[in-house]
Design a binder for these strands. Sequence first.
DNA 1: CACTCATAATGTCCTGGACAAACGAATTCT
DNA 2: AGAATTCGTTTGTCCAGGACATTATGAGTG
Lengths: 306, 306
Amino acid sequence: MDSLQPSDEFPGIGIAALERDIGVGKETLRVWERRYGFPQPLRDAFGERVYPADQVARLRLVKRLMDQGGRPGKLLGQPLEALSAQLGAAPESGVGGGEAAADWLVPLLRQRDVERLRGELAQRLAREGLERFVVDTVPALNRRVGDGWVSGEIEVFEEHLYTEQVQNLLRSAILGLGLRDASPRVLLTTIKDEEHVLGLLLVEALLALQGANCVSLGTGTPVSDIVAAARATGTQVVALSFSGACPWRKARDSLTELRAALSPAVALWAGGAGLSGGARKVAGVRRIERLEDVATALAEWRATSA
Amino acid sequence: MDSLQPSDEFPGIGIAALERDIGVGKETLRVWERRYGFPQPLRDAFGERVYPADQVARLRLVKRLMDQGGRPGKLLGQPLEALSAQLGAAPESGVGGGEAAADWLVPLLRQRDVERLRGELAQRLAREGLERFVVDTVPALNRRVGDGWVSGEIEVFEEHLYTEQVQNLLRSAILGLGLRDASPRVLLTTIKDEEHVLGLLLVEALLALQGANCVSLGTGTPVSDIVAAARATGTQVVALSFSGACPWRKARDSLTELRAALSPAVALWAGGAGLSGGARKVAGVRRIERLEDVATALAEWRATSA
DNA sequence: CACTCATAATGTCCTGGACAAACGAATTCT
DNA sequence: AGAATTCGTTTGTCCAGGACATTATGAGTG
């Protein structure tokens, strides 16, 4: 709505609006300008920064690539096309195309029509079944929403709206499965400072579908709390999810620490885009590459423990 | 969790944490310190501000009173007791006590137990019926949540959680009423920069309950869009909600502008705490003082138009 | 390959100055 | 009386440039 004006007569947006739009603090934006020479906003009649639409678009790409592990020093020098190319290459869109276009999604988000959004999602879930919904559809929709943000079609707020609805739906679906006493008992969570919740829910759904007894601690659990909870609940498997935003090393260190603190009898599983980069393996940690492998890991565990 | 440490060994929190906790920007916090001498944080080994728990508590009260129209120049000089007294006096807790204590609410929020929160709310709605729920219970719960934040029992995030669930519940209750073709057709919204949504939903519920045909545009609609929407949907009544945070003059000006732009045949209703202060009336605008008056206004409209 | 350490990159915090927009009170108009 | 206008004051946000803690990178080593 704001950022689609091409030029002429609408010079651009202020630094506060940019902070909201991109999700990068004012101080950081000013430092980028000082250090890397980009962005290079115009100035209004009173010396305040005014960011034209093309710079905003470029910044959106930069932010996106940074969330996937890119670094400002490299990214801020590149022109728009180069960034676009990088973004197109990176996402391991992987095997399934999932839902091809999902063009119904963006308009619904822009209108903030929560009811119909929920309806459409629920309909797809019912039609495809929980497994395909989780493995194919949700990842495809996530991609669509992410792309929509990059291109300026939708705002962060609307992205939250989407996440919220998918969460609601998955939670009630999981609750509906209602298997309480099956084995193994799996503890799901993410480490401290890792707030991405969707991946966790997807895994929980897949596990619940196979009859596992899931206990989710939500996001951002410190290692010590994970250990305590695992002991208290008699957990047999601890499963962690790491989003793309989570730095390489931190993931590795948390896993090492957790592995040491946890009883050797408890299995430790780790998955998510945050592990794709460097560190391949930590001793005693079962790596889960893709959502499809969740079922495999579970089957293996059952075979081993029997 | 953070701010409950009394002193000794835990000196306090940093400025970034304070910004999150209180909802006031870092720059503003620094300027308050410079201008009014409060807050006056300690400094850590490296010269960075550290806010002890008592100052945080006092700031929470200040912020609360500012949201009700207070001004920093006056508030920041007062000691904690004076602020407390003011807060106790101000809220027009009005007639109904609503739910006396609602002590079940805060623990649920702290545990982030969304499922049970929803359950408890739904149960009360079913027991009391929509009207009493909207007029008595929800305002009482709002107050409880607000007080919980002031006292540091719950965090902003948990406040959002609460709002979200009440919204869900009310929306589906309204949808469940399912009256589509009754008269009048009422357009509900708030003006630009006014994001408070709960008041709007309460009014919508009451109107729907009386068989009005409600169309909600959500929050933050610019005047021109309101006019366009009113024309497009053949609206007979436009109802606006103004929260306590909305400044006096802005509310008045919006109403004046809207009244001028709207067809004279369309009624204009305005309500909410934002109008309590100064400007008593704008010509051609029906003022709605309390939730109970919604039904009255509707009855009047029907009498007049018949 | 996986680990360790020095160097470079990066975000956040600091001070102090400036001004536009919002406000309150006193005044005039109806 | 109550509404509009005016004007000095209050208040949030912006700017510049400097500093440092933290974290990543990459070369060298087991």
